[in-house]
């Protein structure tokens, strides 16, 4: 084995350790029987999961996260898909500028967005409401949908759409019967990303959500300041499992569509 090969393996292991170590570190603590979030773990129990699902604050936080997450998934997926479809037409004036504009929320600091949204939402009567949080999360979730759906649409052969038109399908029918089904894998992964983004969002939630819209992420954030309970680790465990599930869905969808396209 050459020196370079050894170096490559060492580097790969180091990089993966760096990325995954925090996750591995927190997971055993989810099953601790102690009331403290630290090592060594004296014994194992599921008491913190029980706490998560029975204690009112945690249960509400989980439900809030799911409600808001689903709302964001629907809203962001619809908006992001429409934007991607609209900007697919290259002859549109300023399409490059618009394209960049749709991606801006990805790079603008969330703090800046949060301040602006808070001011705006108070005026509009959306502050401290579920709708407000859903709107706020959707703003940063739309770019993920937009990017995914744009990529999927790019993969749709325009000649197939032309074929549909030549066979008598109006533009709307062509879109519904041909373009949309072929772009579905991109829309699904966009939706999964939108859900994950909402689940994960803390900063915007801090700015626009009231006490009734405490999400799981925000609850974890405040808990870690107030009392460092292992319930955080249990919540983190749920997050990780959820994320792996979502990633699996995306991979399955991509794999299936790749299989379908393979000639």
């Amino acid at each position: 084995m050459s020196m370079l090969r050894v170096l490559k393996i060492v580097f790969a292991v180091a990089a993966m350790t760096f990325l995954l170590a925090p996750l591995v570190a927190i997971l055993p603590l989810a099953f601790t029987s102690s009331v403290f979030l630290n090592y060594p773990v004296p014994g194992y129990s599921t008491r913190w999961f029980a706490e998560l699902f029975t204690a009112d604050v945690w249960r509400r936080a989980i439900i809030n996260s799911l409600v808001i997450g689903l709302g964001v998934t629907v809203l962001a997926t619809v908006l992001g898909t429409l934007a991607a479809v609209g900007l697919r037409e290259r002859r549109l004036p300023f399409s490059g500028v618009l394209r960049t504009a749709f991606l801006l929320p990805m790079v603008v600091p969330a703090v800046v967005l949060g301040v602006g949204m808070q001011l705006l939402f108070v005026r509009m009567g959306l502050a401290n409401s579920y709708l407000g949080v859903i709107f706020a999360h959707s703003v940063i979730a739309v770019p993920f949908v937009f990017v995914n759906v744009s990529a999927a649409l790019q993969g749709v052969d325009t000649r197939v759409e032309r074929a549909a038109a030549s066979l008598g399908a109006s533009p709307i029918t062509t879109f519904r019967r041909v373009t949309l089904p072929l772009a579905t894998p991109g829309i699904v992964s966009g939706a999964v990303f939108a859900f994950a983004t909402s689940l994960d969002e803390v900063i915007l939630t801090l700015f626009v959500a009231g006490p009734n819209q405490r999400t799981l992420a925000r609850q974890m954030f405040s808990t870690i300041r107030e009392n460092i309970s292992p319930a955080i680790a249990a919540a983190a465990f749920l997050f990780i499992v959820g994320t792996i599930l979502a990633a699996t869905i995306v991979m399955l969808v991509r794999w299936k569509s790749a299989q379908r396209r393979a000639a």
């Binding site: 000649r159 074929a163 008598g168």
Partner: peptide
């Protein structure tokens, strides 16, 4: 528009 022309089109890529 194409969908009202009633022509059969066969593309090189089959489509």
């Amino acid at each position: 528009p194409p969908h009202r022309r009633n022509m059969g089109v066969v593309f090189q890529s089959y489509a």
